[in-house]
């Protein structure tokens, strides 16, 4: 049997092409099969650059000089434009300073803005306290909605207490 594509070499490989769920069987020579296989595209990886360009403001990803007026991280001095170009933040503090804009980006990359995994030993107590504060806040909102004002006031005091321990 002759290769269905080049019609020259002997065919030795079954090749199934799937286009929009339409299957097509072909009998190809190894050379053509390999070419077909190479054309196979691995799917565009997440393009952080495009995401950043969209999120860090107009022209952020273009080669703009770092302007004085521009938003910068107070800890390391990284400017938004530099982040837009490299896709890399400058320091841990950047996550705070770039706050809201970064949050939108995290949401798009991860579908979430909240860590739920491992916590370093050193931070563990503080982390648990913060989670407790979050939990009490939710309860307080619920109490207010149900007009249980006494309970809400007690919760508010408990939260204030915990926050003092955190500070």
């Amino acid at each position: 049997m002759i290769c269905e594509r080049c019609k020259q070499q002997p065919a030795s490989v079954h090749y199934t092409e799937v286009i929009n769920n339409q299957k097509r069987q072909m009998y190809l020579c190894p050379g053509c099969a390999e070419e077909a296989q190479r054309a196979f595209d691995l799917g565009a990886p997440l393009n952080l650059h495009n995401l950043l360009a969209g999120l860090m403001g107009p022209g952020a990803a273009k080669e703009l000089p770092e302007k004085e007026t521009e938003f910068r991280c107070e800890t390391c001095g990284l400017a938004g434009a530099a982040f837009g170009q490299s896709g890399l933040l400058g320091c841990g503090g950047c996550y705070q300073y770039f706050g809201e804009r970064l949050e939108a980006l995290l949401k798009r990359i991860h579908g979430s803005t909240r860590h739920t995994g491992k916590v370093p030993q050193r931070s563990r107590n503080k982390y648990l306290l913060i989670q407790e504060v979050d939990r009490l806040r939710a309860q307080m909102r619920e109490a207010v909605e149900n007009e249980e004002f006494e309970r809400a006031a007690a919760l508010r005091d408990a939260i204030r207490d915990l926050q003092q321990r955190l500070a």
Partner: peptide
């Protein structure tokens, strides 16, 4: 960070 976990240079690795 208590909210977003381990901080990394690229936001694709954070958490």
């Amino acid at each position: 960070s208590d909210r977003i976990g381990y901080l990394t240079a690229c936001p694709t690795n954070v958490g």
